[in-house]
């Protein structure tokens, strides 16, 4: 039997990568839609709650970490430490003067003494803040964190 041998140039092996861009563009769209810049990077163990409401984007943040350091952010810039809880009031007044409808988020560690949080809430109330959110993690039915 005659053996036919193929002659000529064979095409180079090739993995098409054009569709990869479509996939990653879809991922980017997802990230842009759900994007929320973390203005406060202090590490705290948040209390857990079953009731949790969505916090408006770019809300002002007052955080208290485990060592008691208080940081403040107007919602757009990275948070900066303040020397004492009394400074929170003047900061909040400035922010409210610029945007009276802005919500404030209190991000405090679950082991923080309530006295500190009480003073922060009081300062926010005196600065005529309309809505305050107490940041929390989701509590599961078993009582753990999700």
């Amino acid at each position: 039997m005659l053996k036919v041998r193929r002659v000529g140039r064979q095409p180079d092996p090739y993995i098409p990568t054009a569709s990869m861009a479509d996939i990653v563009f879809l991922l980017i769209i997802f990230f842009i839609v759900t994007y929320n810049l973390e203005v406060d990077k202090s590490r705290v163990v948040l209390p857990t709650t079953m009731v949790r409401n969505e916090i408006p984007r770019e809300s002002a943040v007052i955080s208290v970490d485990q060592s008691g350091i208080i940081r403040v952010s107007g919602g757009k810039e990275t948070s900066v430490p303040v020397p004492s809880v009394e400074e929170v009031g003047s900061f909040a007044s400035d922010v409210v003067a610029r945007n009276p409808e802005l919500a404030f988020v209190v991000k405090a560690d679950k082991d923080t003494r309530y006295q500190v949080v009480d003073k922060i809430i009081d300062a926010l109330k005196q600065a005529k803040v309309k809505t305050i959110f107490l940041l929390s993690d989701q509590k599961t039915a078993e009582g753990g964190r999700r």
């Binding site: 949790r52 409401n53 988020v105 305050i132 107490l134 940041l135 989701q138």
Partner: peptide, 18 residues
């Protein structure tokens, strides 16, 4: 970039209207 700079979990909490 988006993954490093975004926060997933800390966007909800207990609210109370003053």
């Amino acid at each position: 970039y988006f993954m490093v700079t975004m926060a997933f979990s800390a966007t909800k909490g207990l609210d109370f209207a003053v």
